[in-house]
């Protein structure tokens, strides 16, 4: 029996742990010589999606979906990695006896699960994912596997997200009921912003939406990819003399802008924040928002449990979030699970 000295596995753990295991830089596939979503610049990286804590600049070579690569270039510049290799959903590439297949994760536009096959074992590294319908990305595809690598952002039984359209309707109702106020909706710039716009349109909101400068480029990118965002307009960077009246209007901005000096241009704003964290009152209070909207691009507790069951995985590895609760729950279900203790992930702003 040969065990890699770097492998943290005990002899009882799943054999996949001999060729896929965490290193300080992130989750490492030894035979393939690549990392998945590394937190530092490495030679070879497979990137699941474009959020900043998963896609970082400075890698030698990046393998990702065309959308993720485009997002990385948009955010970091054309030369943010040495070489880019596109891989489409459903496509497989082989690297030194490891098959890499990419399937949709349902998290944001271009988000992918990485299906790895080696030594007749299949591991699915799911990145960030959700199961509910999202008009701005491909739906999650279930891949049966031996080991399922999952996130645990909302892995506490208290996290049960609301139906997203219902939350969009609440916002619209609030806008209609308070025509004298400006509604400011805080959203994560990539994914959540465009999903909320799509949801609002779906719920019948046809007015012009005003976007903070930080949201403009990515929203244009979604439009270029064929997603309809309806009427929107950027808010000027400087309030140059003439005051625009935003009363009765909907403004979208990054969450941090809500309590930033930027927000002072709106008289008596009504603040909203679309995030899975809004499920907990203390968190809503912490952000000081009047209208907490419980909309998330991550799986909630029931989705996490159901997905893990459906994959039929013999073992589950948990990457980041509330690992202790999920590992405990899987223990109750008789599924061996362990926390990989990967660092560098941050889903605060989701």
């Amino acid at each position: 029996m040969q065990t890699s000295p770097k492998s943290p596995q005990s002899s009882k753990a799943h054999p996949a742990g001999r060729w896929l295991y965490p290193r300080p830089e992130g989750l490492f596939c030894e035979p393939g010589g690549f990392y998945v979503d590394p937190n530092k610049p490495v030679d070879k990286a497979v990137i699941t999606h474009g959020h900043a804590d998963h896609a970082r600049r400075g890698h030698g070579a990046v393998l990702a979906t065309p959308e993720t690569i485009a997002i990385m270039k948009l955010r970091y510049g054309e030369d943010c990695a040495g070489v880019f290799q596109h891989i489409d959903y459903g496509q497989t590439v082989s690297v030194n006896g490891v098959n890499i297949r990419i399937v949709p994760a349902g998290h944001i536009l271009g988000s992918a699960q990485v299906v790895l096959e080696h030594n007749a074992t299949r591991v699915v590294v799911s990145g960030d994912y959700k199961r509910v319908f999202d008009p701005t990305c491909e739906p999650f595809e279930l891949v049966p596997c031996d080991v399922f690598v999952t996130e645990a952002t909302f892995a506490l039984p208290v996290f049960r997200h609301e139906p997203a359209v219902k939350e969009a309707r609440r916002l619209i109702e609030s806008v209609r009921q308070q025509p004298e106020r400006t509604h400011m909706l805080g959203v994560y710039g990539l994914g959540k912003c465009q999903r909320m716009i799509a949801l609002l349109r779906q719920a019948g909101f046809e007015e012009t939406i005003h976007l903070h400068g930080a949201l403009v480029e990515l929203t244009q990118f979604y439009e270029q990819r064929g997603f309809t965002m309806g009427s929107w307009r950027p808010i000027g960077k400087d309030s140059s003399g003439q005051r625009q009246d935003y009363a009765g209007q909907l403004v979208m901005c990054p969450p941090s802008a809500i309590s930033d000096r930027w927000s002072r241009r709106f008289p008596d704003p009504a603040t909203a924040f679309a995030s899975g964290w809004m499920r907990v009152r203390g968190r809503a209070r912490q952000y000081g928002v009047e209208l907490p909207l419980i909309v998330s691009d991550h799986a909630d507790w029931p989705e996490l449990i159901a997905t893990i069951k459906e994959t039929g995985a013999e073992e589950v590895w948990v990457t980041h979030g509330r690992e202790d609760a999920l590992v405990h729950q899987l223990g109750l279900m008789g599924i061996p699970a362990r926390a990989l203790a990967l660092v560098g992930f941050d889903d605060e702003g989701e």
Partner: peptide, 24 residues
């Protein structure tokens, strides 16, 4: 209905008994 350990972790996170129960 709820596992004691999961309740404890949830209560710690939420910080309020009534709210934790309402969610669980």
């Amino acid at each position: 209905t709820v596992d004691a350990e999961l309740y404890r972790l949830s209560r710690d996170y939420v910080g309020d008994t009534a709210e934790t129960v309402s969610l669980l």
